[in-house]
Amino acid sequence: MAGQAWADEVFETLKRLRISQVGYVPDAGQARLIARAEADPALRAIPLTTEEEGVGLATGAWLGGARAVLLMQSSGVGNCINMLTLAANCRAPLLMLVSMRGEWGEFNPWQVPMAQATERVLRAMSVIVHRAERAEEVAAMVEAAGRLAFSSRAQVAVLLSQRLLGAKVFVAEE
């Protein structure tokens, strides 16, 4: 979780956006954000078995007058594709924070295909995509994305670049 100071700012931003449900699939890049959500009794942290569950969760929350955010990795975007229909058809607000893998110094080739398709897949399903390259821009971007989602009933994803998060290192370089 070292070097995730931006996560505290994002957490405060989510509180300011009146988010009350945080759906997530565990992710190293957003580990601090997840820990903050789990530790805050004013929020409901909701671990999901698969990211697509989060689209139903967020739509249901909004139908009932509450706001959700979904935290996931780029691989999880692939799991969400058909479920995005629910948010699109109802014009239900959707705010997704997506940790990118497979694009910057990636060690694991199995992360690459979905990562490279992530932005195109989201756009193909009419999700508006913001992309953060630097830690200092993340919180403002999440705030703007949240306002866009909840005020304009849009589906918005904020991609957190792998360069920002730092590539995962498993083994010494060959």
Partner: peptide, 10 residues
């Protein structure tokens, strides 16, 4: 899951 989000909201 839509039911869960709604139940927590209401």
């Amino acid at each position: 899951m839509t039911g869960l989000g709604l139940a927590l909201a209401q």
